[in-house]
Design a protein around this nucleic acid. Sequence first.
DNA 1: AACCATCGGTTCAAATAATGAACCAACCAC
DNA 2: GTGGTTGGTTCATTATTTGAACCGATGGTT
Lengths: 276, 276
Amino acid sequence: MGTTSKALSLLSYFSRAQPLIGLSDMARLSGLNKATVHRLMGELAQAGFVEQAGSGREYRLGPAVMRLAALREHAVPMRDVAAAVLRDLSDATGETAHFSLMQGQTLSTVAYAYSPLHGTRVTMEDAEVLMLHATGSGLAVLAYSPPGMADRVLAGPLAARTDQTITDAARIRAILDEIRAVGVAESVSGFEEDVHSHAAPVFNAEGVAMGAIAVAAPTARMDAQLAARIRAAVRTQALRLTAMLGGLTPPDYPKDERPRDAAQDDSRAVSLPAKG
Amino acid sequence: MGTTSKALSLLSYFSRAQPLIGLSDMARLSGLNKATVHRLMGELAQAGFVEQAGSGREYRLGPAVMRLAALREHAVPMRDVAAAVLRDLSDATGETAHFSLMQGQTLSTVAYAYSPLHGTRVTMEDAEVLMLHATGSGLAVLAYSPPGMADRVLAGPLAARTDQTITDAARIRAILDEIRAVGVAESVSGFEEDVHSHAAPVFNAEGVAMGAIAVAAPTARMDAQLAARIRAAVRTQALRLTAMLGGLTPPDYPKDERPRDAAQDDSRAVSLPAKG
DNA sequence: AACCATCGGTTCAAATAATGAACCAACCAC
DNA sequence: GTGGTTGGTTCATTATTTGAACCGATGGTT
């Protein structure tokens, strides 16, 4: 790993939960020597990527990222494009819609839209990181990533966010096959309790999944009818968003939703009917 | 300069005008060896800070900056805070208001607000870089930066954006003194033709200028009355924004707008009355 | 079709920058 | 005081970065 990668990796330790990180903490988190971290943070600070917070001498993300983000958004107005699609998607389903993008090894939320239809809804956080094996979006992306990708992720430790998170690699592999057969992924309470999400992949110009859009609904509200409506809508809108972002939906992506049995699995249901 | 700084400096060559940069171009722009640039861009790409655009193999800013920006904005909601202040400022003046922050050696626009009052208005670009010697905001910041700062900037080449840009270092030094006497900076057509801007510094917790807010109006609309209203408003709102961002307005900052002669300079007017 | 100037990308010995254990001084809780 | 922190520094050792030269491919010119 090059020095630059190390420096950039330091930035990834900042999160919503931990916006301020001290020198020693950063050294511990990254596993790098304190002197090394000090120098790297110094360089990052000089470039404005981090700054030292007023009171303590802890570091936080700096203003330079704001400038770069504005330029990125101007060059690739993904967020705006996605916002329009998400609005349609949440209108069509009456539930929360969100769009997440792969960045390195993680999936992070780019935009979301709520529906005013119900008083209760699934809420999202800006820039939330979604676990690949425990969310509908993550599974949708894994199903349509290069083979090595899923292998790498499933080889690593699979943390359980809830007691319904599936952490068995073999079972997940089977689920990925099922997703590929239908084009839509599903997760019930795998990431947050009482959240049932459906997701479909969004492809880049090479036909590889670069992210996913999803609809997240309270499990209490989910039934066969709503699920069918959501699957159809998320599928349609994913195709549309892929096109709008200049991506290419691969030829082997299922052409249209197949007829499904109305019967749902029990509460632990996560997979889609394997039916081919 | 460390390797990390070199890598980060590459990111600064992306701009609104040049969102896509090829390998050879980047090597030329940065003055680094092509092989070096290739490796650094590779590391930046791996971390998601840049990506290679679909068609050519040129680079552009990547999705990672979006995520970091969302976290930064969550930790330090400057943009939101500034947006409210700018709204008030543009309402009070009927003209375009904007807020810019120092990042390294340059001043870049963070947020702006338009007034619906007039059909013609000064328009802003996201993340625009403002020249320190040629804009009201830049002069306001220079006037309230550590002494070395102005020396460094004025020692370098002072480019003329328009034929009314002041490029004489001695003259600018005199103008900075005048700004310090009144607390508000002014620039007429120094950056864009037919734009008259007034600016006031925004201070950080150490009492050093970290940026400026400004009101930009078409020169055709500027008269003594409007100028007086703008000066008062930009001053008030700068004090307010400094407070809201946890900054400290230094004790020697002029307490209130002094009575001024109604007489304006001729068209080349840029300085404020030196009166002390 | 030959030519020339690009382009992005690669190679490898030489040069340079990164590294980390040990060491500060300052701060805080006890 | 004492012990365990903190952020920050030093410098000999080590490993990474560097850049001239070199690819093959592409695209325009003659």
